[in-house]
Design a protein around this nucleic acid. Structure first.
Lengths: 338, 338
DNA sequence: CCAGTTAGCGCAATCGATTGCAATAACCGG
DNA sequence: CCGGTTATTGCAATCGATTGCGCTAACTGG
């Protein structure tokens, strides 16, 4: 089909090895400059495209990166994936995307199939804290964690500064006069759920507020389960006037619960989300939320994995934290006197 | 690193070719049954994983499919991508995902880079009707179009039955008493925009309604541009009591425009969307819309491309139309007497 | 002017799997 | 018992690019 190194060599009357060296920027200095330009021109003319399987077979590098995310249909992830893609492809790498649905078995399965594909590294967005594969995998591959950190092993990661983000949310509510602030927390087995809950407790403490009985965790990130949990939380203590959701879905579920309890948001209760997914500005009410830079998380993760691949020096494990910002919309309002 | 065919052969004292044949279901009948089981067991014990680069080099099949979509962050696509992924991976294929941002140059670029990767085929979700690459590409690769059809070349495609979907929307409004129904159409250069506009005109005609001056097209699929267009459309003719948006974003933009004109939805004006993206049930007002089976579109497309790859018989070009359904929510209401 | 570099390029092996062809042995019917 | 299948396996080439090694010629400095 397409031209090969041998074709170019034959046409130019030189050896394929020379063509290979001329075309590879890393070895072209071994070839006469005139020859290099001649080869380059011929390659362009015959529109030569290197065969990645051949070079991959020889060098055992596939120039692909496995990207493991829980669920692409969760609007949190497409932005990150785009960031990853754009940065990787600029460097000649291709992401291989897979979903896990947060299922450990499925996760083991997709990781196995990616390593069968001989990926050069992994970007993992899976949230589970106690991850059996992680330690093992990180010994055999370069890895970058996104949107989470690892408790046990020290691994490179890119995530939002959860402490800062939660502080933004809590202090926004505090500034509006709220004092009885609850937290609908994410699953404790998830990194972000855990971190945000910790950050919430700490920030409340810093302001001299109690969190006893005002934190309830869901077991998934769905609106529905958040609604159930929030329903119990809100009815157990009617003095709650504000809620921080551990992500946007949980905040939306809380809004639904409030509505079911005939408590109007933001009139009777203020609710803050986290992530700022698409369309959060047009839900009812428009959601005040903490925006995390999804694209940047993705591109930074891509940069980190690339640096692990090209540099032979063992760089220290980098744990990047990106700063989120507060987006104030219509789901929060000043506390009204009762 | 990992075991190779040669390793297995050596351990068993047989030739690598025999191992290869034994492990390949298509050729294992050439090998003694006892040998096959012996080889299988040894392969499993040494956890042999075939090297796709080696086999790809020899067979020039990469077992990858290029999936070209305009923008992953458009919530319409993740569902389709999941459908594609799940079906492809079950067949041992891996999708390679890329974005184009609806930019023809970028599109040419990503297609080139995918073909450099030696993909075995393409699934294209790019919407542009006049597609210069299409004819060319389809001669060199198996192709399936999704969420669109091709005007010029006859190509396999999977899309929603737009005529049916638009009819559902229009007749829903008609049934509610609306007679002056407008259409905020998608870009005329896009396949879906064009088709839905045609379907709208035809359905209106079938009901003896005029569409003159009640159709306006946007030049992108964004909420903002729809808002501008709808603003002009609605103020040009205050008798309009209902609008069909060519997709959900356009409907949302129309809602925003109506709000700016102090016309309340659904009280003063009914608005229907198309696609039923995530969260359309919790926007304000909850959007009545036409749901297209995103997952099924994806998995059907994957099935179509796979059938082109495995079957040597030249199957006739299949153009699949999936039936959408109407989801009635809060953005539509019976026409009120003025 | 000569020994010693160095630049430039060719040779050939290699990565791991696949496959047409050949070779061997077992087996069949007559 | 023999020519001819048939079943099973081995041999070796091949896919296309990479790279260590070695060869040749030019070039350098003393």
């Amino acid at each position: 089909m397409s031209a090969t190194l041998k074709d170019i060599a034959k046409k130019l009357g030189i050896h394929p090895a020379t063509v290979s060296r001329a075309l590879n920027p890393r070895t072209s200095h071994l070839v006469n400059a005139a020859t290099v330009t001649k080869v380059r021109k011929a390659a362009a003319a015959m529109d030569y495209v290197p065969n990645p399987m051949a070079s991959g077979l020889r060098t055992s590098r596939s120039h692909t990166i496995g990207v493991v995310i829980p669920d692409l249909t969760n609007p949190l992830f497409p932005g990150m994936v785009r960031g990853i893609q754009d940065t990787l492809s600029r460097a000649g790498y291709t992401p291989l995307l897979v979903n896990t649905d947060n299922d450990p078995d499925e996760e083991a399965h997709v990781v196995a199939s990616l390593s069968a594909r001989r990926v050069d590294g992994f970007i993992l967005a899976t949230a589970r804290r106690d991850h059996p594969l992680l330690a093992d995998l990180s010994e055999r591959y370069p890895i970058v964690l996104i949107n989470r950190v690892s408790d046990s092993v020290q691994l490179p990661s890119v995530a939002a500064d959860e402490q800062h983000g939660i502080r933004l949310a809590v202090e926004h509510l505090y500034g509006l006069g709220h004092r009885t602030i609850a937290h609908v927390a994410g699953p404790p087995w998830s990194s972000t759920g855990h971190e945000r809950a910790q950050a919430f407790a700490r920030t409340m403490r810093d302001h001299g507020l109690s969190t006893a009985k005002h934190v309830a965790a869901v077991d998934g990130w769905s609106i529905d389960s958040a609604r159930d949990v929030a329903l119990r939380l809100l009815s157990s203590d009617p003095s709650i006037t504000a809620v921080v959701g551990a992500n946007d879905q949980l905040a939306l579920g809380t809004i639904a619960a409030a509505r079911a309890l005939k408590r109007r948001c933001p009139r009777d209760i203020s609710i803050v989300g986290y992530n700022d997914m698409p369309f959060m500005d047009i839900v009812d009410p428009p959601l005040t939320t903490v925006r995390v830079p999804q694209n940047e998380i993705g591109s930074e993760a891509a940069r980190l994995i690339l640096s692990q691949l090209v540099e032979d020096v063992v760089t220290p494990v980098k744990q990047v934290r990106l700063t989120p910002e507060l987006v104030i919309r219509g789901s929060t309002a000043p506390l009204r006197a009762r």
